[in-house]
Amino acid sequence: MRIQLTSIYVDDQRAALAFYTDVLGFTTHHDIPLGDDFWLTVVSPDAPDGPELLLEPSGHPAVKPYRDALVEDGIPLAQFAVDDVESEYQRLTGLGVTFTQPPTDIGPAVVAVLDDTCGNLIQLIAPKTPA
């Protein structure tokens, strides 16, 4: 069994695609019209055959209370691995990205949490000993 696709809800799929590609640096994998919405996925350029992240419309009524409660408490909905959290923090804040948690050494890893501008918090992590 493998994890091939996981999803997050985004307020606006086009804005989300711009953020996840232009700012975070992922690559568009699928962008297929589906009614009023799109089957829209991105992958890491480091792993083009790796897991896809589905940027799913947030229209379902359960999404807003779910995400509002998580964002209020600062809880990230996804975790992306980076080589160096501090340099990503510098690069992304330079691009106007807001962090709810700056780079923090938690022992086995350095973590930070950013706002993806589409309604979610995302954690960046750089394990000190590569898994």
Binding site: G74, I75, P76, Q101, T104, I106, G107, V111, V113
Partner: peptide, 11 residues
């Protein structure tokens, strides 16, 4: 945030 406090308390 609550999340950050929980993380640092645990780790």
């Amino acid at each position: 945030t609550l999340f950050e406090i929980c993380t640092t308390l645990t780790m």
